[in-house]
Design a protein around this nucleic acid. Structure first.
Lengths: 154, 154
DNA sequence: CCTTGCGTTCGAGCGCGCTCAAACCCCTAC
DNA sequence: GTAGGGGTTTGAGCGCGCTCGAACGCAAGG
């Protein structure tokens, strides 16, 4: 078994939430049973962002990252999972400040589940309308392409 | 018939390219047979952007807009169609500079169809992967929502 | 010992896409 | 005549999200 197998597994689970997942997978994600960790370059590569961006995300409080003896960042499974979530939300248009609010709630001691739920529900709606928008744009683009092709045949 | 019926029709046609459209619709879109025009406030309202933005788009060459006797902008059907296209492409992530390139080609004298086709094809691919990304994000979000709900029931 | 390479912190800079403000113009209604 | 509400032009400003640079630290290899 590769040394960072657990990290890759966490990454994959977070990346591809299967259709019928449930408590099982949550527990899996919640387990921190592997000592394997990534340095910033490796983490950046797997997450598809730059090391600069990873440092930036940590600086603004989106993720907490441990240090090794030399003071270098070590990305463990929880950090990677958080970053997968963060990058996904960023890519899907959630603003940095909303994301900060969300992770502040997630990191809080108290029960903030209902407020986070509200944010998630709202983001879900945003995503749905975004997708609808993009599908409209796609239809328009394909329509234009088809038109050009037809015109070209005249 | 409302005075700006033709403009609304142009807007609708450009907004909702029906599945099986063809030359017919193109001709319809291409006809400039109506004298009705919009002022900047009306155009902005219908296009869902601010007057500021409309002036900005004109300034950077994305659209040409005529003036009335008083020097006020008059948005006719071609301008509206162009702006529908522009806003759709913007919303779907095409950069201003790419759009400028595209409309420069479209406004050029020469035959630039093939180059525009290339841009459209590329944008189509971008749109498809964007949609895929968003659907992933949506799945992840719904997964998280479902998880919270299950946890809440425990 | 010294270079190479990878990391650190912190503040500053930047590109994009608007967004605004100032000074002005014109038309209509009172 | 004048107040109000729409519009115009231009250059400047701004918020976001990185992105970079400078100065430094540490550890391994030649």
């Amino acid at each position: 078994m590769e040394p960072d197998e657990a990290l890759r597994r966490a990454l994959r689970l977070a990346v591809d939430p299967p259709a019928g997942v449930s408590i099982e997978a949550v527990r899996e994600l919640a387990r921190d049973d592997d000592a394997s960790e990534w340095n910033i370059a490796t983490a950046a590569k797997h997450l598809g962002v730059s090391p600069h961006t990873l440092r930036y995300y940590e600086r603004i409080g989106l993720v907490r990252v441990a240090r090794d003896a030399a003071g270098h960042r070590r990305y463990d499974a929880p950090a990677v999972r958080r970053l997968v979530f963060v990058t996904r939300m960023r890519v899907s248009g959630m603003s940095i400040s909303d994301l900060r609010h969300y992770v502040d709630l997630a990191d809080a001691e108290q029960d903030t589940v209902s407020e986070r739920m509200d944010m998630l529900l709202e983001h879900r709606d945003t995503l749905r309308s975004q997708i609808a928008q993009l599908q409209l744009a796609l239809a328009a683009t394909e329509y234009k392409i088809a038109t050009y092709q037809e015109v070209h045949q005249l």
